[in-house]
């Protein structure tokens, strides 16, 4: 377990399936059974058509790098080394914030649109955070 003194999420009834998923090594999204739209963050209704007929499913974990910064300001909770804060586009459509890991935290190593795959970082007994790393070549 990484040295976690960082702010961690508190699940709500509407998001519990997501955080239970990451604990079990699954990235769980929701989609509307009426209009088929996948969406994130979690909520028990479709943000596009308003239907409450939605289902949770396991996403592929594949994504591409949409945009990011490399934070250079030392922080008591994130350490002094520069680190990425990124937004990725999931293969299923929605975007989410994350950190890109397992690669140098440099502009050269972090090319926009590069293929990524999800990995889970255990932060506490209750919380594992979804992070993304460069996709392994198929």
């Amino acid at each position: 377990m990484a040295d976690y003194n960082r702010p961690l999420p508190t699940a709500t009834p509407e998001t519990r399936h997501f955080w239970e998923g990451t604990q079990n090594g699954e990235l769980r999204l929701q989609r509307c059974t009426a209009c088929k739209e996948s969406y994130f963050p979690p909520r028990p209704f479709c943000p596009v058509c308003g239907s409450r007929a939605v289902e949770v499913y396991k996403a592929s974990g594949k994504a591409t790098l949409y945009s990011y910064v490399i934070n250079h300001r030392p922080r008591p909770d994130f350490g002094t080394e520069p680190h990425s804060i990124a937004v990725v586009t999931l293969a299923e459509g929605p975007r989410m914030m994350t950190n890109i890991v397992d690669c140098p935290q440099t502009p050269e190593a972090l090319a926009l649109d590069m293929p990524l795959e999800v990995t889970f970082e255990k932060a506490s007994d209750e919380i594992s955070l979804p992070k993304f790393r460069p996709a392994k070549k198929a």
Partner: peptide
């Protein structure tokens, strides 16, 4: 930490 931002953005350092 239970807000949407607190759950899905703040843990990544923003």
């Amino acid at each position: 930490p239970a807000s949407q931002s607190g759950q899905f953005e703040v843990p990544f350092g923003i």
